[in-house]
């Protein structure tokens, strides 16, 4: 049962990576990165159960915290001095609707 969940989480991680690589704007990447972090938390918790050492949960808890902080840090520093009213990356708005 844990293996099934791990497989699902890994598949989702790969998809999140696709979005993180593709962008197109930095906000898409940050969103994908944040989502990726949540999946890593789940992955580590599940791995702890599979190997029978649930003290891994400390690490999972730390991950959740670090992921949150890193996301806020990127947002805080990125938005700084970006002119208001202008898109953060010029290419982002040209994306064609699916």
């Amino acid at each position: 049962m844990f293996a099934t969940a791990i497989a699902a989480v890994i598949a989702a991680m790969v998809l999140a990576l696709v979005r993180a690589f593709a962008g197109p704007s930095l906000y898409d990447r940050v969103l994908a990165g944040n989502s990726f972090g949540t999946k890593t938390v789940l992955l580590i918790g599940l791995m702890g159960f599979i190997t029978g050492r649930p003290d891994f949960l400390d690490i999972a808890l730390l991950y959740a915290l670090i992921n949150f902080t890193a996301t806020l840090a990127i947002l805080r520093f990125f938005s700084y001095r970006t002119p208001k009213g202008a898109p953060a990356e010029p290419a982002s708005e040209k994306e064609s609707p699916a």
Binding site: A8, A11, L15
Partner: peptide, 9 residues
């Protein structure tokens, strides 16, 4: 989880 990731892409 997988559906969310598919939507993300």
């Amino acid at each position: 989880v997988v559906a969310g990731a598919i939507g993300l892409v």
